[in-house]
C-alpha cells in the first residue's frame, strides 16, 4: 500500500519577465489502487504538476510538499524518484537519437530493479509486453521515440510502465493522439498493470472517452493552478457537456 501526498504545492517557471507562478496550492492524495482523473483547460498547469512531481529541472518549487509513503519526493534526484516508485508517462515523449529502445528499457529496468534482469526472461518479458500493446517487435531496435508517430510514442510510454511497475503512475494525456483501437489497447495495458500491481494512477485527460475504459474513482477539476472541484465519474460527464466556463474567471 502506497500513498502520494501532494500538499499545498506551489510551482513557478522562470520566464524572460521573471518568475511566473503556475501552481497555486495543489492538494491531492493518491493511494494504491485508486484512479484520479484530472481535467482542466489548456494552460491550467496540469503538465506542470506532473513534471514537478517527476522533478523536471525547469520548474521551481516555491512552496508545499510532495511525499511518497511519508518520504519527501522533492528532495530526491529525478532518477531516485523513479526508483522510489514514481512514473510519468509524458504528454510529449522525448526522442533520444542513438539509443535503442531495447538498450534503454534494459538500462532502465536494471536501475529500477537494482540488478540487471536475467537475459533470457527479460527478452520474453519485453516481447510479451510489446505484443500485448500491439507494438511491432522491430521497435526494439529503433532509437527511443525517434520518428515514432504520436500514438506509437504513447504506447511506448505504457510499455515502459508495464516493465518498470511503478507504485504511482502519472499519465499526462496518454490518450491524446491514439486512434480508437489504440485507445482500447493502451487502456487495457494500464488496467493490467493497475490490477496486477495495485498501483495508484493520476490520469490527466481532456476527454471522457478514456474514462470509459479506465474508470476513475475521483475526478478533479484543475483551473488556474489548483484543484477547484472534486467529484466522482459523473463530474467528467458534466464537464464534457458544460465545459470549464463556471471554473474560469474571466
Amino acid at each position: 500500500m502506497s500513498t502520494l501526498e501532494i500538499k499545498n504545492l506551489q510551482v513557478a517557471v522562470s520566464t524572460d519577465e521573471g518568475m511566473k507562478q503556475i501552481l497555486r496550492g495543489v492538494d491531492l492524495t493518491i493511494n494504491s489502487g485508486e484512479t484520479h482523473a484530472i481535467m482542466g483547460p489548456n494552460g491550467s498547469g496540469k503538465s506542470t504538476l506532473a513534471y514537478s512531481i517527476a522533478g523536471h529541472p525547469k520548474y521551481t518549487i516555491t512552496g508545499g510538499s510532495v511525499l511518497l509513503d511519508g518520504v519527501d519526493v522533492l528532495e530526491m534526484r529525478v532518477d531516485e524518484r523513479a526508483k522510489a516508485g514514481l512514473f510519468l508517462a509524458m504528454q510529449y515523449p522525448v526522442e533520444v537519437p542513438g539509443v535503442s529502445v531495447s538498450n534503454f528499457l534494459r538500462t532502465a529496468a536494471t536501475a529500477i530493479r537494482g540488478e540487471a534482469p536475467k537475459v533470457r526472461t527479460w527478452v520474453g518479458e519485453v516481447k510479451e509486453a510489446m505484443a500485448s500493446l500491439n507494438m511491432d517487435p522491430a521497435f526494439a531496435e529503433r532509437n527511443v521515440n525517434e520518428g515514432f508517430s504520436g500514438g506509437e510514442k504513447k504506447r511506448h510510454e505504457i510499455l515502459q510502465m508495464e516493465l518498470l511497475k511503478p507504485k504511482i503512475a502519472i499519465l499526462d494525456e496518454t490518450d491524446s493522439g491514439l486512434d480508437v483501437d489504440a485507445l482500447r489497447i493502451v487502456s487495457e495495458g494500464v488496467n493490467r498493470v493497475k490490477d496486477s500491481h495495485n498501483i495508484g494512477i493520476m490520469l490527466i485527460t481532456h476527454y471522457t472517452r478514456i474514462l470509459r475504459y479506465i474508470t476513475p474513482d475521483y475526478v478533479h477539476v484543475f483551473a488556474a493552478g489548483r484543484i477547484v472541484e472534486e467529484g466522482g465519474a459523473e463530474l467528467a460527464e458534466k464537464l464534457e457537456e458544460k465545459g470549464y466556463a463556471e471554473y474560469v474567471t474571466a
Binding site: 534526484r77 526522442e95 542513438g98 532502465a108 527511443v144 518498470l164
Partner: peptide, 27 residues
C-alpha cells in the same frame, strides 16, 4: 530534455549522459 527523459526512468545522470554520448558517436 533527453537527460530528463532517461533519468525519469530511473537511469542515473552519469549513465544517461554515457548513453547519449555513446549514441551520438555510434552513428
Amino acid at each position: 530534455e533527453q537527460l530528463f527523459y532517461l533519468e525519469s526512468r530511473g537511469i542515473p545522470a552519469n549513465i544517461a549522459r554515457q548513453l547519449v554520448i555513446r549514441g551520438f558517436f555510434l552513428e
